[in-house]
């Protein structure tokens, strides 16, 4: 029982015709829907940043010391590659819009590769923290007398980088799906709302990292190791 859009007009009293917007193929509606969806993501991460700031207000000294300990090299590397991946994703969308489908696919693959690299680096970083006795339910974080502010800082560090990593993972999944849809001919230069929205999603993932990175890695940078 297909639900095809039948073009329809409404006629006003002067006899002018006005086109009726259907829900099918509503390009701007699709964009607006995805922007609204991104607000929910923003609110979720805002609530976590709020938690982080709440305890920063209580324990500024502990936070700075805990931050100084994190690996700025790996974190910084991830920041730069994620930045580049946002660029490749955007170029892929441009390729798609200009009609170059195979070029678009190459850029999507490049983005996926960088996203996977990001996760690998993240894994190394977590492993290094673990070696230093810092992990959820392990080492210092369950040690009596370890400063509370540090426990909270690292607790949020693993929560937020973890949930951000989860979003990266979802992003990779979405890009695989996008490639399948492109191969199936469902996403085309004339009909690319899915590509557009996944590119938006990827920018959002990058955007979150833009705040996660300084809040965790940089606030204690002046104190060095």
């Amino acid at each position: 029982m297909a639900h095809e859009y039948v073009p329809e007009v409404a006629i006003d009293r002067e006899g002018n015709e006005h086109l009726v917007q259907g829900w099918q193929d509503d390009y701007f509606g699709g964009k607006m829907g995805f922007w609204l969806f991104m607000f929910t993501e923003v609110m979720m991460f805002s609530a976590m940043f709020l938690t982080l700031s709440y305890y920063y207000t209580l324990h500024p000294q502990d936070y700075t010391e805990a931050s100084a300990h994190l690996n700025r090299l790996l974190g910084g590397f991830n920041t730069v590659i994620l930045l580049i991946s946002a660029w490749t994703m955007g170029l892929g969308l441009l390729k798609m819009r200009s009609g170059d489908v195979s070029g678009a696919k190459k850029f999507i693959l490049a983005t996926m590769f960088i996203a996977a690299l990001f996760l690998v680096v993240k894994g190394f970083e977590w492993h290094e923290e673990y070696e230093h006795g810092i992990f959820l339910g392990h080492g210092h974080l369950i040690e009596e007398g370890y400063p509370l502010g540090k426990k909270l800082f690292y607790g949020m560090y693993f929560t937020m980088t973890g949930l951000h990593g989860f979003h990266v993972l979802i992003g990779i999944g979405l890009m695989i799906w996008l490639l399948k849809r492109i191969n199936a001919g469902k996403v085309t230069p004339e009909h690319h709302i899915l590509h557009f929205n996944i590119a938006l999603y990827w920018d959002l993932v990058h955007l979150i990292w833009v705040f996660v990175f300084p809040y965790f890695y940089m606030i204690g940078a002046a104190h060095g190791h």
């Binding site: 917007q21 193929d25 390009y27 819009r97 200009s98 230069p189 690319h192 709302i193």
Partner: peptide
Amino acid sequence: TNEQTVDT
């Protein structure tokens, strides 16, 4: 609003 044209 639904235009998704190709424009080099």
